[in-house]
Computed example of a mutant assay.
Amino acid sequence: MIREIITYPTPPSVQYATDVRVFNEEILSLIEDLKDTIEANSLDGLAAFQIGSYYNVVVIKKEDGEFLELINPRIISNGGRVTTLERTAYFPGLSANVTRYEHITVVYQDRGTNQHSLKADGAFSILLQRKIDYTFGSSFFNKLNKEEKKLFEKKLDFGSNIAISEACPTKFNRDYIVKAVNITMIVMLVFVVASLFMSEESSQELWGYQKSLFFATITLNIIYFFYAQYEGKKFTSCTSCQIGNIIGTTLILLTKVFAIMLISYFIM
């Protein structure tokens, strides 16, 4: 029977998987359900935890299409470290760079209660480790380093790997326009202060330059407003927050320049 796969943010049914002690029809049925669910979802493996069962059972689909049934699997030795890009059904559509053991040795039982051991390396080793994680109520999220975990939390917020690549950057080209506006306003303030030490004739001449700077600043603000919106469309994952920021920045800059111009009018 095809079972529903538990996905984030729903937690697994229990904290730790219970080892199978009685190899009865319930366990055999669980194994078949895992196989059916793997086939229906084109997966490479599932732990019983992922379909809401509390038993320590893992089923892996091998390259030849056959299934490997692992009951009460345990990793007894490991070696080497490797970082790879992983995906899991618990976080559908998302991936993360996870560091794991390069090769492992696993002991387990089959449906006939026979004890086995196997050595795995490469992709097979990583797959086994990922599935055995679930028997401890864990997922690859708990294996991430600080930076990768922070990045993955953003992916969870957006619900997409693509969204994270489009997330708002810390710097935009439009910031250079804001910088130019601020420099222009600083020059205008310098003119205001300078006019206090000039003759009336010189102050009037300076007033002409001040008006030119004022119109230049207004023009830069207009350019900023429209260019910022154009640039913001490239990052659709945070369009709403950008629009608010663009409008707010424009209003603040205009308020400042009009205030400077008003002061200039009375002083110059």
Results as ranks from 00 to 15, higher is better:
residue 2 I to R: 12
residue 4 E to R: 03
residue 7 T to V: 15
residue 8 Y to I: 11
residue 8 Y to E: 11
residue 9 P to R: 01
residue 12 P to C: 06
residue 15 Q to W: 15
residue 17 A to I: 09
residue 18 T to C: 02
residue 18 T to S: 08
residue 19 D to A: 06
residue 24 N to H: 07
residue 25 E to V: 05
residue 25 E to F: 09
residue 27 I to Q: 01
residue 27 I to A: 00
residue 30 L to C: 01
residue 34 L to R: 08
residue 38 I to L: 04
residue 38 I to C: 05
residue 43 L to I: 03
residue 44 D to L: 00
residue 49 F to N: 06
residue 49 F to G: 03
residue 49 F to I: 00
residue 49 F to K: 02
residue 49 F to H: 05
residue 58 V to K: 08
residue 63 E to M: 05
residue 63 E to N: 12
residue 64 D to V: 10
residue 65 G to D: 06
residue 68 L to R: 03
residue 73 P to H: 01
residue 73 P to T: 07
residue 75 I to L: 09
residue 80 G to S: 15
residue 81 R to D: 04
residue 84 T to Y: 11
residue 87 R to M: 11
residue 87 R to V: 08
residue 89 A to G: 11
residue 90 Y to E: 11
residue 90 Y to W: 07
residue 90 Y to H: 06
residue 91 F to C: 00
residue 94 L to G: 14
residue 94 L to C: 14
residue 97 N to Q: 03
residue 101 Y to K: 08
residue 101 Y to L: 07
residue 102 E to G: 13
residue 103 H to M: 04
residue 103 H to D: 10
residue 108 Y to C: 01
residue 116 H to L: 02
residue 118 L to M: 13
residue 125 S to L: 13
residue 129 Q to C: 02
residue 131 K to F: 10
residue 131 K to E: 14
residue 138 S to I: 14
residue 138 S to H: 06
residue 139 S to N: 00
residue 143 K to H: 13
residue 143 K to N: 11
residue 145 N to S: 04
residue 149 K to W: 03
residue 149 K to V: 14
residue 150 K to V: 11
residue 150 K to F: 02
residue 152 F to R: 09
residue 155 K to S: 14
residue 155 K to H: 08
residue 155 K to T: 14
residue 160 S to P: 07
residue 163 A to L: 06
residue 166 E to Y: 01
residue 168 C to S: 13
residue 168 C to Y: 05
residue 169 P to C: 04
residue 170 T to D: 12
residue 176 Y to D: 12
residue 176 Y to N: 09
residue 177 I to E: 12
residue 189 L to Y: 00
residue 190 V to C: 04
residue 190 V to P: 02
residue 192 V to C: 06
residue 193 V to A: 08
residue 196 L to P: 10
residue 196 L to D: 07
residue 197 F to W: 13
residue 206 L to C: 03
residue 211 K to M: 02
residue 216 A to G: 08
residue 217 T to S: 13
residue 219 T to W: 09
residue 221 N to F: 00
residue 223 I to H: 03
residue 224 Y to C: 01
residue 231 E to Q: 02
residue 233 K to M: 02
residue 234 K to L: 04
residue 234 K to P: 02
residue 237 S to M: 09
residue 237 S to P: 10
residue 240 S to M: 04
residue 245 N to R: 05
residue 248 G to V: 15
residue 250 T to K: 00
residue 255 T to M: 05
residue 257 V to G: 08
residue 257 V to R: 06
residue 259 A to L: 11
residue 260 I to K: 03
residue 263 I to T: 15
residue 264 S to V: 08
residue 265 Y to H: 11
residue 268 M to G: 11
